[in-house]
Amino acid sequence: MRLHIDWTACDGRGVCTELLTEMLTEDDWGFPVLRNGDTVPPPLDGAARRAVDRCPMLALRLVT
């Protein structure tokens, strides 16, 4: 599974970077940066789903 960010929707609120610190960090303006690509490792499946669910801008999606 891959984490997809819709950049036209993302507002850099920072919820995903808290819920998915293993995959995401923040840039100079608070927008998420993928640390090592967009592939979600199986142990982070649940955290990724929570990040998708809690994104206030609905900018995150899990795609296969």
Partner: peptide
């Protein structure tokens, strides 16, 4: 508070939202 992007009321952002 959740709109701010800052950890509000001493809570992390996702906790504020939850």
């Amino acid at each position: 508070g959740s709109r701010s992007g800052r950890p509000a009321f001493g809570l992390p952002r996702f906790a504020v939202s939850l």
